[in-house]
Amino acid sequence: MSEHLLSIEGLGITFGGLKAVDDVSFTVRPGEIVSVIGPNGAGKTTLFNMISGIYLPGRGKVMLGGEDVTGLSPNLLAQRGMSRTFQNLQIFQSMTVLENAIAGYHLTERGSVLADLLNLPGSRRRAAAAAEGARALLTRVGLDRAADREAGSLSYGALKRLEIARALALSPKILLLDEPAAGCNAVETEEIDHLIAEVAASGVAILLVEHDMKMVMRISNHIVVLDHGEKIAEGDPATISRDPAVIAAYLGTDAQTASETETADAQG
């Protein structure tokens, strides 16, 4: 059993008197895929925003690699190996696809601003190395042929993959994916599915928020269930899909999907 890479301890936040997230704890190990699921408004994205430093948590701690990183700003978290994507895309619209991916290399390609102004060899070398890495990543997510297009012109599914490529450019130790398959068709979902598994296999810890239950059940090692901001269950996919509290929280269609998935998994 390897060390915990990310450990969430009693995290909570209140918006206008409402506890959006309350006392949530769990851990993620390197190479592990942990999914956070729950009905709409359960606080999944808010939890992500606290972990990734966009919201300052009201209570609790975020430990990354044994270091307390609670409330650290996103750019400092990036330096410590955390990277994420967004539910509502945050793409640099007016930059090209390639430049979006290169932007993910900011921490390795940045250098003296004077060298950048004067286009000194050092600056060019850094930029070229980043471009090379970015091209490889675009190939990996199947966007190499769109490299020189303006990012704003890409389809939704392609932008989702571009965000993953940009996040991977940081060579993260932990990757937070907020609904990477939302709005994608079946083929795209499967591609993303494979990509996530591949990244995890290379030792990157993955924290996933996803609505596609089939995908969650298929790829997760561990699932955390939120409802009304609280953790109501936690365990491996098989356990979670049988958990009465989870089924009650999902009431109806989603619960059914979950149990169907389980059957499908058992058959497959």
Binding site: N75, S83, R166
Partner: peptide, 8 residues
């Protein structure tokens, strides 16, 4: 936000 997340 995205810029901060990539480390800017």
């Amino acid at each position: 936000i995205a810029a901060r997340v990539v480390g800017v």
